[in-house]
Amino acid sequence: MNIFRFLGDLSHLASIFILIHKIQTTRSCRGISFKTQAVYVAVFVTRYLDLFTTFVSVYNTSMKIFFIASSCYILYLMKVRFRPTNDPSIDTFRVEYLVGPCAVLALIFNYGYSVTEVLWSLSIFLESVAILPQLFMLQRTGEAETITTHYLAALGAYRALYIPNWIYRYFSEGYVDPISVTAGLVQTGLYLDFFYVYFTKVLQGQKFELPA
């Protein structure tokens, strides 16, 4: 554990709390892509299958349980509790175009041909593109509630912080995880456009609006 990874994990936690807070206070999941949230459930469940086989630390185990539980809770909020506020007609990104290629990549690039390793690899690739339905929705509507942009910023910050973590681990432990690093760089790259608008508009007190 180093400071970058810890701050990244805190940022990830913060993003989830911001999202739940947004849905509960506005009593609406407007502007949130159900598809992205559903992919996150798939990501956490497939990645944390080792919850039953590998013990790393109390921190590690609690975070895994929290991520699985909170992502399922968000799906419940969207599909049951605040269902009428979820508009599938603007959530049109085709998730199957993500899952297919990620499954192929997982079969080619993994750390061992076992069910858990291939699913772990799949979860890494899937996480790297999970935000696309959400960003696509943002692009389509051209605007977002400020709280939603804070959610995305925290999620993007989590990914960005994992990069110095990997650099640190390379020099301090000689540890390199090429699958995580490659997918992580791609994932962080997807946020660059969003971050540009977030820093130049939202943090200057303006509304998140994309040019027409």
Partner: peptide
Amino acid sequence: LPSDSGHDEL
């Protein structure tokens, strides 16, 4: 390989 010691990152 990283998986020798399990995946310790989240």
